[in-house]
Amino acid sequence: MDIGRIDAIIDRHRSEASSLIQILLDIQAENRWIPGEAISRIGERLEVPAARIRHVATFYKAFSLVPRGRHEIHVCMGTACHVRGASRVLDASQDATGIRPGETDPGMKFSLETVNCLGCCALGPVVEIDGKIHGRMTAARAAETVKGLEGPRKTE
């Protein structure tokens, strides 16, 4: 990530140590993950030790310290979704993306995650793709939606 962009985000928060989480959130939103150079830069400018920043960045699930794909797929595995077949939806999503939860594919297209509840149990099974909630998912529809991201696949 370009140091200028990191600095611009830090400037927006007036380099205050109390804004650490907000700065990390902004970097995460802009860059999809928090690279090492961002941690060093924040550490220097906020005068917060890197150990503290790493502690915060690994505490919250909202932050990623490894590169993330262009599309974030969150499959809900909460109780309501689970009883309605979330595990089949997850299987289909894994097959369609070729990755397991917590992973990103080498082409940086997808990152797959499981979540424990998205808070809309009545719509279950739920999959959230790039912030948009898809309710009443079936394995087939999950595969179709995932494959349809960035237009139809050229390889077929």
């Binding site: 060093s40 030790p49 890197a50 150990a51 503290r52 790493r54 502690h55 690994t58 505490f59």
Partner: peptide
């Protein structure tokens, strides 16, 4: 010096040395 810190939380919490430091 903050050469060692905690990372993660809950059952995944562990200590971690910061290589640069």
């Amino acid at each position: 010096k903050h050469a060692v810190g905690f990372i993660g939380r809950g059952i995944r919490k562990e200590i971690c040395f910061i290589p640069e430091v």
